[in-house]
Amino acid sequence: MSWVYRGRCHKFGHDLHIDDEIMPLRFVRERETRPEVLSQYVMHGIDPEFPKRVKPGDILVAGRRFAQGNPHAQGFRGMKALGLGLIAEWMPRGAYRNCVVAGLPAIPKCPGILDMVNDGDELEVNFETGLITNCTTGAKLKSEPMPSFLREIIAAGGSTSFLKKQINKA
């Protein structure tokens, strides 16, 4: 996979809840796993039209404590299915792990990102090096990428696909 994403910035604020803001909780109760279903409900509690507005390569940029709450992975699986990349000022432990589980390229701790981008800007993000370029304004930011062993899991497509690779190797 390519670690460089180029696309539109979709900017959100702070403290978004994973359950019902980012993804309806009923998909957790129903144990829904199909990417084609989950992708159609990303950010449903905030902007139900969101999945229709995005294209693969677009970047979801969020504020502090992104995806707080009981760490459910359905929201991240939906984002992955839409082909999005994710940058947050900060996301908690459970959300961070669920990016890895879902195989979603992410910069989980990027203080200052909200000030650097506007909704609709063209961004280029290298999830391997952490370099973020705002192509609309020319601003650049060097962030901390995820460690390489986690990117290896993301590159495989998430924790289950990574496991499959390990098993096939053994």
Binding site: P71, A73, G94, R97, N98, V101, F149, L150, S159, T160, L163, Q166, I167
Partner: peptide, 14 residues
């Protein structure tokens, strides 16, 4: 949570 299957298969997790 979602990495529990990895624990089932390998006995460990990061």
């Amino acid at each position: 949570v979602y990495e529990y299957p990895t624990v089932m298969a390998t006995g460990t997790i990061w």
